Simulated assay, not measured.
Amino acid sequence: MRRDLVRSLRGARLSAPDRLTGTVLVAFSDAGVFRMRAVVVGSVAFQTYPALLGVGIPANLARTADLDIAQAHLIAVMVEDEITRTPKDLLKKVDSNIVGIPTPRWKACVSSATHSDPEPRSV
């Protein structure tokens, strides 16, 4: 089904996520990250705008080589649920070449990650 969606997006000349981005989004979704009030922001979220606005955006302007996810912490705290796996664990499950980058303030907390192969992969 996911491949059909990507094929449809490309057929309509819209931007579609690369394979790694799609796989990470599915892993985070399966783990309940979005259930806990996290949202996709940044260039991956902006890929939805051309379809909503009926305009074209050149692919090289529509993407950076990252995936940004934000969370409304105060809302997430109020939800009586929890995620048992850390973002770092989820990323490692997707691809062992992904390396977490600790935040300067909290060394134990991974707030971003990088991949040894920075080139986006197509579906």
Rank of each mutant, 00 (worst) to 15 (best):
R3D: 10
L5W: 15
V6G: 09
R7M: 01
R13M: 04
L14S: 02
L14T: 01
S15G: 08
S15K: 06
P17D: 04
P17I: 02
L20R: 11
L20M: 08
T21V: 07
G22N: 06
T23H: 06
V24E: 04
L25P: 04
L25F: 09
D30Y: 10
G32A: 02
M36A: 07
M36F: 15
R37D: 10
V40C: 02
V41M: 04
G42A: 00
S43Q: 01
V44R: 04
V44P: 01
A45V: 01
T48H: 03
Y49Q: 02
P50S: 01
A51F: 13
L52M: 08
G56N: 13
I57V: 11
A59R: 14
A59Q: 12
A62G: 02
A62W: 03
R63Y: 13
R63V: 00
T64Q: 05
T64V: 03
L67A: 01
I69H: 00
Q71E: 03
H73F: 08
L74K: 13
V77T: 06
V77L: 10
E80A: 10
I83A: 11
I83E: 13
T84P: 08
T84N: 13
K88Y: 14
L90A: 03
L90N: 07
S96Y: 12
N97Y: 10
V99W: 15
V99K: 15
I101F: 14
T103N: 09
V110P: 00
V110Q: 00
S111T: 05
S112I: 00
A113T: 00
T114D: 03
T114S: 06
H115P: 06
P118L: 00
R121Q: 11
S122A: 08
V123T: 08
V123F: 15
